[in-house]
Design a protein around this nucleic acid. Structure first.
Lengths: 246, 246
DNA sequence: CCCTGTGTACTAGTATACAAGAAGAGGCGG
DNA sequence: CCGCCTCTTCTTGTATACTAGTACACAGGG
C-alpha cells in the first residue's frame, strides 16, 4: 500500500547496490509494519534485535530508527529502549489539517487551469478504480487513489509537494488501518472521486475545493470513533519532537 | 574556527551534560551555516573533518548529515564526498506553496474565532517589532516575526503544524539570506503585519487571508531575481524536499 | 510483611576499526 | 608532448568494541 516514496531520489545516481537496499528495505518494512498496526503502539524494538533479524549491524538500523523517530513513528528513550510510538490524536488532526490545506488549494488551482490531457489522465484512473470496486480489489483501488491524488498535485504544478502530503497521510493511515472499512467504503470513495473530477472538468474551482474537503473529511471522520475503540493505542499528551530553533 | 573552539571548550567543562547535546548543537550549527550562506552550495564537507573540528567521532556527525540530507541541505555521494546542496528553485516554489496553503488557512481560521487574549498576544509582538524597526535590530525583528507567525498557527488550533512550515521556510530563507534586504524592508514587513492583525481583530477572514497571501508573496517575490543574480548557487534539476512529522 | 540496597542484564550513545570504491597525482611508455 | 596505467589517498559505508546509564529482580535487614 501506499507508502511514502520519499528520499533516495538523489542517490539513484549511484548504482543501487544491495548495501543501500538494506536500509531502504528495513525502513520500508518497519514503516509498513507500524502504519498497518502489525507492530502495535508501545511494542518495544531493540536496535540489537532488529539488527540480528536482518543480519546487519546496528549502524544502519540506528539510521533507520532515527528517521522513524523524526517522523513520529518511534520513540527512543536513551539507555532504556525504543518503542513504537502511540498514535497521537493531535498529530492526526494536524496531519488532516495539512492534507486539507495542501490538497484543497491544489485542486482549486487544477480546476482553474487543467487542460484536456490532465483530465484524461484523471478519468483514466477513475476507470481503474471503477474496475477495482467491481472486483473488490482494495489494494488496486488504493494504489490508484494515491496516484490520482498525486496527479492532482502535479497538475497544480507542485508534484513534489506530494511528499509532504504523503508524510502527513501516514499519520492518518495509521488510524485508518485500525478500522475495518465496510464493503461499500470503496464505492463511496469512488463516487466522491468522480465528483472531484467532474468539478475539475467543469473548471468549477470553488466546487472542486468543497468536494475535496468533504472527501478528505470522509476518511478523517472515522478517526475519533476509532480512537475511542482503541484507546490503548492512543495518547493524549503530544510527543516531544526535537525543535528546530526559536 | 570559532565553532570548534566553542564546542570543545564546552565538552571539557561539562562533558556528561553536553554529550546528548552534541548532535543538536552540530545540527544547529550546520543548518544555520547553510541557511545563512556561510557554507556555500557546492562546498564539500567531510564527515571526518567535521568530526575532528567538533572533537567527536564520525558516528554522531553521520546522523546529523543524514538528517540534513533528508531535508535537502546536503548531498551525499557514496565513496566520494558530501556537499552543500545547491538551492533548487522548484523546491523553493514548493516551499512557498506549502507555506501559503498552511498559513492562509490558519489565518482564516484564526480570524474567524480569535479571542481577545490571542489578539493581545499578537499586538504585543507587533510592539516588539515596532521597537526593533525603530532601532534597526534585524535579529530581534525576525525573532518576533517568527513568534508571531507561530502564534497564528497556535490560535488556529494547530501549533505543531509550524514545524512543517518551518521546514518549508528554511528553503525560502536560504534565498532570502542571499539578498541584502534594503533598510525599509523591515518597515514594510511590519506594516503588513499590522494589517494582518487588524484583519484578525475585525474577524475579517477573507481579508486576512488575502493580506497573508500578499505578505508571504512579498518575501517570495525576491526569489527569482536573486536566483538570476546568484545563478551558480542554484540548480534547475529537481531535488526532493522532505518534511518532519506534524 | 515491607522496604531498601545491590547486582545483573539489558539499553542506547559513542568511538574505533575495517572495507570498498572513487579521484587524482605521477611515473612510464609511446 | 600525449596518453595510459598504477598507486596513493581520500571519501563514505559497515561492523565491532566500549561507555554509561536505566530497570528490575532479589536478597537481606528492619
Amino acid at each position: 500500500m501506499a507508502v511514502a516514496r520519499h528520499a533516495s531520489a538523489l542517490r539513484d545516481v549511484v548504482p543501487a547496490e544491495t548495501a543501500r537496499a538494506i536500509g531502504a528495505r528495513l525502513y520500508q518494512d518497519l514503516h509498513d509494519d507500524i502504519i498497518s498496526g502489525r507492530r502495535r503502539p508501545g511494542e518495544d524494538l531493540s536496535e540489537t534485535r532488529v539488527a540480528e533479524q536482518y543480519g546487519v549491524s546496528r549502524t544502519p538500523v540506528r539510521e533507520v530508527f532515527h528517521r522513524l523517530v523524526e517522523e513520529g513513528f518511534l520513540r527512543v528513550v536513551p539507555q532504556v529502549g525504543t518503542y513504537v510510538a502511540p498514535i497521537n490524536l493531535a498529530a492526526v488532526r494536524d496531519s488532516q489539517y495539512i492534507r486539507e490545506a495542501l490538497e484543497c488549494r491544489a485542486i482549486r488551482i487544477t480546476a482553474a487551469k487543467a487542460k484536456a490531457p490532465a483530465i484524461r489522465a484523471l478519468r483514466q484512473e477513475l476507470r481503474v478504480q471503477e474496475r477495482a470496486v467491481a472486483i473488490g480489489d482494495r489494494a488496486r483501488f488504493f494504489a490508484s487513489d494515491e496516484r490520482m491524488h498525486q496527479t492532482l498535485l502535479t497538475a497544480a504544478g507542485h508534484p513534489q509537494v506530494w511528499d509532504t502530503i504523503a508524510a502527513a497521510k501516514a499519520q492518518l493511515d495509521r488510524v485508518r488501518y485500525l478500522s475495518l472499512e465496510a464493503g461499500d467504503w470503496l464505492a463511496m470513495i469512488f463516487e466522491q472521486h468522480r465528483v472531484l473530477i467532474d468539478r475539475i472538468a467543469d473548471h468549477d474551482a470553488a466546487g472542486a475545493e468543497r468536494a475535496m474537503q468533504a472527501h478528505l473529511r470522509t476518511v478523517f471522520a472515522a478517526a475519533d470513533r476509532i480512537a475511542a475503540e482503541h484507546a490503548d493505542f492512543f495518547e493524549g499528551a503530544r510527543a516531544k519532537p526535537r525543535r528546530r530553533r526559536a
